[in-house]
Design a binder for these strands. Structure first.
Lengths: 223, 223
DNA sequence: TTGCATACTACCCGAGTGGGTAGTAATGGA
DNA sequence: TCCATTACTACCCACTCGGGTAGTATGCAA
């Protein structure tokens, strides 16, 4: 927690957005909030990275499409200078590529600009309170990442329960022998299932199989 | 979309919760909403699975800790009978294990019971509109799943840029030869980096390396 | 200049892995 | 009853992978 509930000093918020109209509108809106102080607003990441304000920022609202460095490229640079900063993307891009690039880089929230009720102040407070503000559709796509792909739909690659168990062990880097041991099978039995897996997944090595299985969410990603 | 915006017929909502007081409270609350119809309320998953109501349910609010089958175990069974159902967990369990078990199984929302402002009706509407209702802390933990672990903190396992690139290719199931080709190295050069990786990650096979790298979010999980 | 670390290239060798093939016990129809 | 499928066990063989070891070019620092 950068600020706790008893801390009455306003949150130091920074905006990076190249559209001047939008940016000034947001600054104006946020200035009405007593618990939020706009410490700076910039039209490019380079300006933010060069500013001393970065080193006191609590929350950074970041556009993606910007002149010069993109917002996503800037995230690691920002976090290396100010690790405790809370970065919330505010963007027009609703596609998975930008979304996952941003959160993998370290963004904590992701708001779509044209969303009907874009509540910047609310999102800032939610993020500071330990949440992750997201537009509803964005939240759904993040959750969908974990969902099994088409497991409850007409199944094509009918992996048996045993196949799946072997696949899970493969994903944990176990050798044939190790898998045989825990599954009470001979090494040949393990190979039997692995051959089934390779054929059904259309691959020809353990690495490819694990990659494909993760892709299709056939095995649970490590938690 | 199970119901579109023009559809004025109420949403068919089902509750599974073993605490009678809580359940009846929720039923009463939801009955006040004109766009929501409580089609059934049950104290166990077995009851729901045996009920014909399941086959017309739009949204299912599901507790985790229940007599008999747990809510999480019930998810695949429910979805195999009613794939279009939207499942929202309503539970006391805030730990990662239950959370990720639930969303990996197919839950679309995850609400913590004792949350200060538990808005069931709002959550139901958000889920039906294509969102994923989550308590703020839950959302943060889902997002944290994608965040690099301690990459911006004192780094111990100093993997070089080249090491990381090799690691990424390993994660995609590529062979030494294939990696050598795309990185313009000899196979020996690839082996050099892989040895570095194994030593720094304290592992001794490609499988373990990939598992460990995913665990530490050193490489991006597949999208 | 020497010394040292980094980023490779290179060879040997044994264990692990994958493809081909075949045999067997159990199960379930037709 | 016969036939087919499933779930193994089993052997052969070539290739990949991982550990040990060593050589080399580059750069950096004392």
């Amino acid at each position: 927690m950068v600020k706790d509930e008893l801390d009455r000093s306003p949150l130091s918020v920074v905006l990076v957005e190249d559209n001047r109209i939008l940016r000034e509108g947001w600054v104006t809106t946020l200035k009405l909030e007593p618990d939020i102080a706009v410490a700076g607003d910039y039209s490019s990441c380079e300006q933010l990275l060069a500013s001393p304000v970065l080193h006191v920022a609590d929350v950074i609202l970041l556009d993606i499409e910007l002149p010069g460095k993109s917002g996503i490229e800037a995230i690691p640079l920002i976090l290396s200078l100010r690790p405790q900063a809370i970065i919330i993307m505010v963007t027009m891009h609703e596609d998975d590529q930008h979304l996952f690039d941003a959160i993998c880089a370290g963004a904590i929230g992701y708001l779509v600009k044209m969303s009907s009720a874009l509540d910047l102040a609310g999102a800032i407070r939610e993020a500071v309170a330990g949440g992750s503000p997201m537009t509803p559709n964005v939240a759904r796509r993040v959750i969908d990442y974990f969902h099994p792909k088409s497991r409850y739909l007409p199944r094509q690659n009918e992996l048996s329960e045993q196949d799946l168990e072997v696949l899970n062990h493969l994903g944990q880097g176990k050798s044939y022998a190790a898998i045989a041991k825990v599954m009470f099978l001979s090494v040949h039995g393990v190979r039997y299932h692995i051959r089934q897996i390779y054929e059904k997944l259309q691959v020809s090595s353990r690495g490819e199989a694990v990659a494909e299985a993760l892709e299709q969410r056939l095995i649970r990603p490590p938690t």
